[in-house]
């Protein structure tokens, strides 16, 4: 392999269940056979990559956000804090102020507009970040606590942790949350390349086209991996040709793959065609993707 600038690659899909996590974990394990690779699971609501990888946990830390904490002794119960909170994270029940940290967006308005300093901002745990290591493979995931609604700050922090810890890794892969809303955009906004995983079906095509629109809003280059190739129809291929999007690889539809996936096994180790596909993806990235985006 040619050596070049570090590559940051997001693996995404418009809808869930297309094989995004399967591709992320297999690609990471495959690269790790030869060189260092970092896999970051940013699907923080449902991080599942870890189910497919073994490794030793080498680091664990809590994720926090800043939320206000009511100081009863200072409070004059003027009610300003409640009125300025656009997210209904503060209510006032008679002489008591109640804060709902899960709803808080950490805008600081209540805290800074309080005239008597009765709502200092304090860290509140929102989830947990873990780092695992297995040979060349470094795996990082964050999991949001149940009830926490804002994925974006956790995604930003986890990305920063991964890049800060492994700034020179040739490959950093980000397993993106499904869909095309804010969490997905947070993942793709500073990567070098996006791999979109889809299925050659009407659902797959529809969700792919939405994802492409989003990626184009950020002017990021992307390529498509067609999973379960052979079912459905040719519309995804035609779409990619019309839109000038490279098809990086096609992974054939097979019951065996579905079975291996269901028991949490890495597929390329059993099925040679998948290994060929991973190699094609890797080659494309090394030869065509400009690295070094910050």
């Amino acid at each position: 392999m040619t050596s070049q600038k570090p590559l940051k690659i997001a693996i995404a899909s418009g809808k869930g269940g297309t094989g995004k996590t399967t591709l992320s974990t297999n690609l990471a394990a495959f690269i790790a056979e030869q060189q260092e690779v970092v896999l970051v699971d940013l699907d923080v609501e449902e991080p599942n990559s870890g189910l497919f990888l073994n490794g030793e946990m080498i680091h664990e830390e809590f994720n926090y956000k800043m939320t206000p904490q009511w100081d009863e002794s200072k409070c004059t119960v003027c009610g300003i804090c409640r009125k300025v909170c656009n997210f209904h994270a503060i209510i006032q029940l008679g002489p008591s102020i109640l804060v709902f940290p899960e709803l808080c967006h950490s805008c600081y308005a209540c805290s800074e507009l309080c005239t008597v300093d009765a709502l200092p901002m304090v860290p509140k745990k929102t989830g947990i970040l873990k780092e695992f290591s297995s040979g060349n493979l470094h795996f990082i995931e964050s999991r949001l606590d149940i009830g926490e609604e804002q994925a974006v700050p956790t995604i930003a922090k986890t990305k920063k942790y991964a890049i800060g810890k492994f700034p020179d890794a040739q490959f950093t892969l980000f397993d993106s949350p499904p869909g095309t809303s804010c969490p997905m955009m947070e993942v793709i906004k500073d990567v070098d390349f996006v791999i979109l995983v889809t299925e050659p079906t009407p659902f797959g095509l529809h969700d792919l086209s939405l994802a492409v629109e989003t990626i184009r809003a950020y002017k990021k280059p992307c390529g498509v991996v067609i999973n379960r190739y052979g079912i459905g129809n040719n519309d995804v291929i035609e779409y990619c040709q019309n839109e000038n999007i490279p098809i990086l690889a096609k992974i054939a539809n097979s019951r065996e793959i579905a079975e291996l996936y269901s028991s949490g096994k890495l597929i390329y180790r059993t099925i040679p065609e998948v290994k060929v596909a991973l190699n094609e993806i890797l080659d494309y990235c090394l030869n065509n993707v400009e690295g070094g985006n910050k």
């Binding site: 609501e45 449902e46 497919f52 609604e149």
Partner: peptide
């Protein structure tokens, strides 16, 4: 998922049908 949108989907419902598949996830 399990966030605000699904909570809103369930709120007020009379009956839920869960669809799953036999895999680790």
């Amino acid at each position: 998922g399990i966030g605000c949108p699904v909570v809103s989907s369930l709120s007020g419902a009379s009956f839920v049908v869960l669809v799953t598949e036999p895999s680790v996830s």
